[in-house]
């Protein structure tokens, strides 16, 4: 299982890796990330309510959020003083560091609620989440991994996108995707994504990230 997961991850990251990692220094990113552990967890796996896990997260997504925090486009009183002094180089290194950490596939405590999961799956299909976040919901490039993220954080993120209090990469993709979600929709899709667990098949995902069929 673990081997398959590694193959899958390698396939997902191989394209952006050539571009984004050209100048990245993972060790420097790790040094810079010491301050992050207090909230985001020792290995990038958060145990704090409302705070996202960052382990294995898409490199470009991490970079974009740091840029948004730094410019004030994503206002956050806790992040603002920390990111204020980050250089472009720091941003690249932090992205590479968190991306290098093993992805958390340990399902959150408590069993998945079958009814909520089914509704959440429908919401995910209706709102075309996998068009950007891919079939396994582990993202690609600037589209973040959202599978096995903290449920309370997914609720917060979707609520913030819906109220346009945080910017969306790709112009307005998330603003638009979240605009029509009810509170119940958000609760359901967050539960579904947070309890996905390790990917069960790799075939479908490999197909979507491989070269286009001619």
């Amino acid at each position: 299982m673990k081997f398959l997961r590694m193959v899958l991850l390698a396939a997902i990251v191989s394209l952006p890796a050539q571009r984004a990692h050209a100048a990245a220094d993972v060790a420097a990113g790790q040094e810079k990330a010491k301050v992050c552990a207090a909230c985001h967890g020792e290995n990038g796996v958060s145990s704090m309510p409302g705070i996202p896990s960052l382990a294995g997260q898409q490199d470009q997504f991490i970079q974009w959020q740091l840029v948004f925090f730094r410019s004030g486009q994503r206002p956050n009183p806790a992040m603002a003083p920390i990111v204020g002094e980050l250089s472009d180089e720091d941003v690249v290194n932090l992205g590479a560091y968190f991306h290098s950490l093993p992805y958390n596939t340990k399902v959150a405590d408590g069993a998945a609620n079958a009814e909520l999961t089914a509704k959440g799956k429908t919401v995910a299909v209706d709102h075309r989440c996998s068009s950007c976040h891919k079939d396994d919901f582990r993202g690609e490039r600037a589209a973040p991994a959202i599978a096995d993220q903290r449920e309370d954080y997914l609720v917060k993120a979707l609520t913030d996108y819906r109220s346009v209090t945080r910017p969306s990469v790709g112009v307005a993709a998330m603003t638009e995707a979240a605009a029509g979600l009810s509170d119940d929709d958000i609760a359901a899709v967050a539960h579904y994504l947070a309890t996905l667990g390790p990917p069960k098949t790799v075939g479908a995902s490999l197909k979507t990230v491989g070269p286009a069929k001619k």
């Binding site: 571009r19 984004a20 970079q63 840029v67 941003v91 992205g95 600037a142 589209a143 112009v171 993709a173």
Partner: peptide, 8 residues
């Protein structure tokens, strides 16, 4: 989907 460019 539209690709998003580098953040930096």
């Amino acid at each position: 989907a539209p690709p998003v460019g580098p953040a930096i």
